[in-house]
Design a protein around this nucleic acid. Sequence first.
RNA 1: GUCCCCAUCGUCUAGAGGCCUAGGACAUCGGGUUUUCAUCCCGAAAACAGGGGUUCGAGUCCCCUUGGGGACGCCA
Length: 442
Amino acid sequence: MTTIRTRFAPSPTGNVHIGNMRVALYNWLYARHNRGQFLMRMEDTDRERSTPAAVQTVLDALEWLGLTPDEPPVYQSQRRTAHLEAAAQLLEAGQAYKQDKGDTGKGEAIVFRMPGTDITFTDQVKGALHKAAQDMQDFVIVRSDGSPVFHLANVVDDIFMNVTHVIRGDDHTENTFRHIALYQALNAPVPVFAHLPMIVNAQGKPYSKRDGDAFVGDFRTNGYLPAALLNYLALLGWSPGDDREVLTPDELIAAFSLERVQSSAAQFDQRKFEWVNGEHLRQLPQSMHREQYIQAIPQAGNNPAYLDAVIAAMEDRVKKWSDIPVMAGFFFTEDYPCDEKAVNKRLRKPGALDLLAALHTAFAKCTPFTEESTEATLRDLADARGVKPADLIHPTRIAVSGLPFGPSLFKMLAVLGRDRVTQRIERTLNTIKPQEDSNAPQ
RNA sequence: GUCCCCAUCGUCUAGAGGCCUAGGACAUCGGGUUUUCAUCCCGAAAACAGGGGUUCGAGUCCCCUUGGGGACGCCA
């Protein structure tokens, strides 16, 4: 029984698209599930685009996601001699011939001769595929400038790397017939093929440059978890067969099989991905959360006990790391931004400031200053004034955090402490008032 | 134009002829959590593209139509 070997063979173009990463993921999952090897080959023969930086981007993306190859990457640009030797071999065997372009006369290309028979293979996701001989033409394998063409290089390198399973994008399905002919002409065993459907954008169209946020690097900078991206990407075109939706990388490996891969295109749903990310986030240990808070807000490291209280208060509100500075920044600075819309809605409203001022007075006498006592104080005041608790809760939240949403208000207040709370209410009272006077003709 | 592939709720999917009056998840809507919500819980609405077959029986098999996608490079 031979060891299963899969490979990820991207052409580095500067950005790594989620579609490519899913191809890498499925190759990785298949190899891991079957205790085989996952390999990597840079198809970097396009010198225009394949810059060192572009190559590094691919490597970085794989590393971030934890899709580590089992052997050092093969660089296709360094395999040119082997490609040309294979072409020479085909030429000699009469399975390829030279052809002049005609017009230029600047050298001859080498053209592969298709066998002239129908070709059939069983795709692991699409099933039996067949192509009539008449629908396949001979094709160039070495250009007249002497450079090998993709088809040749791809097949020769897969043979060289002993790849047993070629798992790649749907767009290569048609190429497979030619590739099989090449394997046979080179007397090499034909690998197993599996072609994955595409990932399309919100409009149901293939991703284009216009669709922006589909690059792996963006997910990283926006504070998403690699395990969550892996999880969500795996679910795009595959399912474990039971009702599980949130799976760790190990669980994905255990459950993965090509038989369960869907054969139709899938659409990336940003909101579901957010949810998956949140699920993974809340399973992370406290230490990880601390680390991220400190990274996002350096002052957060000053008081460990306070930080833990903040993290507890924020609980499930944080869905991605980049939420931290915007949702929890006010815990650590007096210089937090204020949501103007919310200020208009809740503070520039008849009676709101009076109520807030009364609450300020009540809070000043509220001892101790806890989740329970602040709640009781606020409710008593609402009762006494004949207003709904919400009429006090909203203005207070905005005064104290600048945000129209967040964790439970009373939890927030207790964490912040009386001094900060009363100061912030006071400051809000002072800054809103004058504006209201000038706008008060009615 | 030629060849190939695909088609279940808005989205991702379960479904390998009777277990389907089609299940789950995200999103949506409604209710609850004697406070907001971008939390949590409960509930609701929501799909087999259309038409022919095959069969006692079809979401599941076959054909056609329609719609989508891909490939037809001396790009990868």
